[in-house]
Design a protein around this nucleic acid. Structure first.
Lengths: 141, 141
DNA sequence: TTAATTACTTTCAAATTAGAAGTAAAATGC
DNA sequence: GCATTTTACTTCTAATTTGAAAGTAATTAA
């Protein structure tokens, strides 16, 4: 499961793990959209195949970015939650969002906009992280 | 060449273009390491295959992140330079570097560290961008 | 003027992805 | 309490992408 790293570079090593089209979309689903279950991730507009989803969740779990658990009153659903390591990707997600908002609209006219984020980046990042931690606290107590 | 977008999400759309193991490594090579030629990119420690390199350079050029030109005194070498759009990826690169520096060392002990960046993120980003613009100005006048 | 360099392209095997279908356990409906 | 649906997968296969190596054409260096 664990991969080899191409070099001693922090960027390259991070991309060795997260450098694909899906991993950060899943982090976005959790952090921004509050998604928690396989079903919810499956239903994202991007349309991830279930096989890829299962393998990405495993990868993220193996690197400690997410945890997988069941709630006492539901033996069927698995709940996937970001760890602090995962929550700490918020600045990366936000900078990608800002860059995309600024430059990708020329290619994808449908892009939605992110006014709050553009107004105050630091506040927006802190808010998203704080909100997510509250969601986690409510679920695992 | 131009791809389809999976959704109206800025993150997903950005990853539709840059979401792979190589594109941001090339941006790093240019922005941080001042690399400019096919040969220089080829010689990075990550060891990109020449076929992949050629296709990535084409992709980045097609999305206006880089330009390709020849200098008057050298008909052989192509010079690849980041545009403003590409230079604007500095915050993304820096956040990925910070995250990787903090969390990937557990998996890749060889990781080099980034003290200046950790001390003042904003200054580090501005410095890198300013330096790169100077390099560009010196080359294209 | 021969050799080396640069920037590729081509080729092919291996790995990854996408899409569809299948499965087992748990929950829901009647 | 039994059949149906739901959830979270796994499996399968085809298509795409990657990686490694070798080849090529134009330019530059010796």
């Amino acid at each position: 499961m664990q991969k080899k790293f191409r070099s001693p570079c922090a960027i390259a090593s991070t991309l060795d793990v997260l450098g694909d089209k899906w991993s950060l979309v899943l982090v976005r689903d959790m952090l921004i959209k509050g998604k928690k279950t396989f079903k919810e991730f499956s239903s994202s507009p991007e349309g991830i195949a279930t096989g890829i989803l299962a393998s990405r969740l495993k990868l993220l779990e193996s690197y400690g970015l997410i945890t997988k658990r069941k709630l006492p009153d539901n033996k069927k659903e698995n709940i996937y939650l970001l760890t602090e390591k995962g929550i700490d990707l918020a600045p990366v997600i936000m900078e990608i969002t800002l860059w995309g908002d600024k430059y990708m609209r020329a290619y994808n006219e449908e892009l939605s906009s992110y006014e709050a984020l553009k107004k105050d980046k630091t506040v927006a990042i802190n808010t998203v992280q704080k909100n997510y931690r509250q969601v986690v606290a409510q679920i695992i107590g």
